[in-house]
C-alpha cells in the first residue's frame, strides 16, 4: 500500500513519504501550508488512492472535541419521558455518534479528515490526545468503551491561526506543503486541464508568478486561484495576445478578479501598474 499521487493530484516526493509513513504507522498526519495549496484535497486523494471511504470532520470555532466522539441529547429524552415514549427506556437512543466514532466502527479502514483544526478553541487538540493516540474512548452514559476496529488514517489540516500544543504535535507526522515550483505547477495544470494550450500556460504562469512577487499583497494568489483563473481564461477564449501584450496600458491581467481576492490588493496592484506606466511613458 503506497501513496504515489493520483491522476488528479500531483504529490511531491516528500509529501509521499510523509503520507506513507503516517498510513503505515497509523499516526495522524498534520498538514500545513499556504491557503489554496491543496491541503484538504489531499485527504480526498489519499482516500481515493487507497480505495477507502473518506469521513470529513470540518472544524468551526464552536466545535468541541466531545462532538467528534458523541453527543448525548438530554433535551429530547426529557421531552420523550413527558410524552411517555417507549424509546426513553434505552439511553442509547439519545446518543448521537460523532465523526470519530463513525470512523472507529467502520469494518474497512477509512480516512478521517479533521479539517482546519486551528479554528477551534486552543484546548481542542488536547482533548483529543488520548482518542487519537489509542484510537479508543469511553462513553460515560452507557459505560461502554469504543475501540477502533481498524485504526483510521487521520489527516489533519491547519492554517496556522492558532498554535497547536506540543503534546499533540509529538503524536503527529508533519508536512508543510510548500508553494509549488513553476515546474511542479505546470504538472498540476496538466493534471487539471489536459487539453489546455501550452502557450496559454506559459504566458499565464508568467503573469501569475509575477503577480506573486508584487510586494505587500494581503493574499497572494495560490494554486487554487490559478486553476480558477485558467478555467476562466479558457472559457472566455481570450486571444493569447492579451496575456502576451506588454502594453503598459493593459498591465492589469484580464479577469484579475479570480486572482486577487480583496479590494485593497486590487487597488494596490492598480496603483503599481499606474506608476509603472508613468515611468515607461
Amino acid at each position: 500500500m503506497k501513496f504515489t499521487g493520483t491522476d488528479q493530484y500531483v504529490a511531491t516526493e516528500d509529501l509521499k513519504v510523509a503520507v506513507n509513513a503516517a498510513a503505515t504507522l497509523r499516526r495522524p498526519l498534520l498538514i500545513k501550508g499556504e491557503p489554496g495549496t491543496g491541503k484538504t484535497v489531499l485527504a480526498n486523494e489519499v482516500a481515493e488512492a487507497f480505495g477507502m471511504e473518506l469521513i470529513e470532520w470540518h472544524i468551526k470555532s464552536t466545535t468541541k472535541a466531545q462532538q467528534g466522539l458523541y453527543e448525548y441529547d438530554a433535551v429530547s429524552r426529557l421531552r420523550d419521558s413527558q410524552l411517555g415514549d417507549e424509546k426513553v427506556k434505552d439511553i442509547k437512543n439519545y446518543i448521537k455518534k460523532g465523526k470519530l466514532w463513525e470512523a472507529f466502527e467502520r469494518d474497512k479502514t477509512p480516512v478521517l479528515l479533521i479539517d482546519e483544526i486551528d479554528k477551534a478553541d486552543i484546548e481542542f487538540p488536547n482533548d483529543l490526545l488520548l482518542e487519537l493516540d489509542r484510537m479508543e474512548f469511553h462513553v460515560y452514559e452507557t459505560g461502554e468503551t469504543i475501540k477502533a476496529k481498524n485504526r483510521p488514517i487521520v489527516i489533519i489540516t491547519s492554517n496556522n491561526e492558532k498554535e497547536l500544543p506540543d503534546a499533540f504535535l509529538r503524536r503527529c507526522f508533519f508536512h508543510f506543503i510548500k508553494f509549488p515550483e513553476p515546474e511542479t505547477m505546470k504538472d498540476i495544470i496538466q493534471v487539471h486541464y489536459p487539453d489546455i494550450q501550452q502557450a496559454l500556460v506559459k504566458e499565464a504562469l508568467g503573469v501569475f508568478f509575477d503577480l506573486r512577487e508584487v510586494p505587500g499583497l494581503k493574499k497572494k494568489p495560490s494554486t487554487s486561484e490559478l486553476l480558477d483563473w485558467l478555467k476562466l481564461l479558457m472559457a472566455e477564449e481570450l486571444p493569447l495576445e492579451v496575456l502576451k501584450s506588454k502594453d503598459p496600458n493593459k498591465l492589469i491581467p484580464p479577469l484579475h478578479g479570480a486572482l486577487l481576492k480583496n479590494e485593497q490588493d486590487v487597488h494596490l496592484f492598480e496603483r503599481l501598474a499606474f506608476m509603472n506606466r508613468r515611468q515607461n511613458g
Binding site: D14, V17, A18, A21, L25, L164, R170, C172, F173, F174
Partner: peptide, 19 residues
C-alpha cells in the same frame, strides 16, 4: 517506510521531528 535511501530517510525524519 524509508526504503533505505537517504532522501527518503531525510523526508521521513523531517516529518517526524519538525512540527
Amino acid at each position: 517506510c524509508s526504503n533505505y535511501s537517504v532522501d527518503d530517510f531525510y523526508y521521513l525524519s523531517r516529518s517526524v521531528f519538525v512540527k
